[in-house]
Write a protein that binds this DNA or RNA. Structure first.
Length: 233
DNA sequence: TAAGACTTTCCTGGTT
DNA sequence: TAACCAGGAAAGTCTT
């Protein structure tokens, strides 16, 4: 399951999404589905609050039409709700099977978010830019975990969101994730932190004296500030 | 192929 | 004592 998840192609993902119950969808599948639905309307994707699109299949299925209108607006909300109902009817299968699959998927839910290759069609560029990794550098990897605190499984937390101060809560777990991304199973926090310290010279990070596991984004780090994130509806 | 940027690995020594 | 921090040195990887 692990390897398959990380190597799932765009075509595989589309096939899985079209055949599986929405209950089994990953976050990526939900994003693709939203993207496909936007393509069929005149909806301006730039006005979408992408932070609210970070849903997996089970979360999506719990939403009523009013919930969807609240999140996606009066134009796209009902459209998505109808589309979901149709897809649910089409893929009506025993939920127990889906549940088992969903539990496995959810274990790797965040890893998929951070490690899969972004899909790149014109209409989902914005979604991919915010929810897929935007770079291969360590500080970007850290930043992308921090941008979605509700999805980071307690790995990192903001100490001061406005100032860009953050803290490692599970240092070794973050190091292992970084190692996984770089295909290096021997990565440790000790090594990761050495790379972090090199960022001080380049003003990507600033020192936070006297605070263990605490770092601060510097003037050359971009994409972490609230006003740098895509617009809210 | 070379050069440079970036990261990894190892290390010593200091601090919490 | 363990975990973390600071930073030098050298080597590895990747991109241009």
């Amino acid at each position: 399951v692990h390897n398959n998840m990380f190597t799932q192609s765009k075509a595989d993902s589309h096939r899985f999404r079209s055949q599986a119950s929405p209950l089994c969808w990953t976050l990526e599948n939900v994003l693709e589905w939203i993207s496909d639905n936007i393509e069929g309307t005149n909806f301006d994707a730039r006005s979408l609050n992408l932070a609210y699109c970070a849903l997996d299949g089970p979360s999506l299925c719990k939403m009523s039409q009013n919930d969807m209108i609240g999140v996606f607006g009066p134009q796209l909300g009902p459209h998505l709700h109808q589309s979901l109902l149709k897809h649910k009817a089409k893929t009506n299968a025993p939920e127990t099977i889906h549940r088992k699959h969903t539990d496995i998927l959810s274990t790797y839910y965040f890893a998929v978010l951070t490690l899969t290759t972004p899909f790149r069609r014109p209409t989902d560029l914005v979604i991919a830019d915010i929810l897929a990794p935007r770079g291969t550098h360590l500080w970007e990897f850290i930043r992308d975990i921090l941008i979605y605190p509700e999805k980071n499984h307690g790995l990192l937390k903001w100490e001061d969101r406005r100032e860009g101060v953050f803290k490692f809560l599970k240092s070794e777990a973050v190091a292992q994730m970084w190692g996984q991304k770089k295909k290096n199973s021997s990565m440790t926090y000790e090594k990761l932190s050495r790379a972090m310290r090199y960022y001080y010279k380049r003003d990507i990070l600033e020192r936070v004296d006297g605070r263990r596991l605490v770092y601060k984004f510097g003037k050359n780090a971009s994409g972490w500030k609230l006003n740098e994130l895509p617009s809210v509806m």
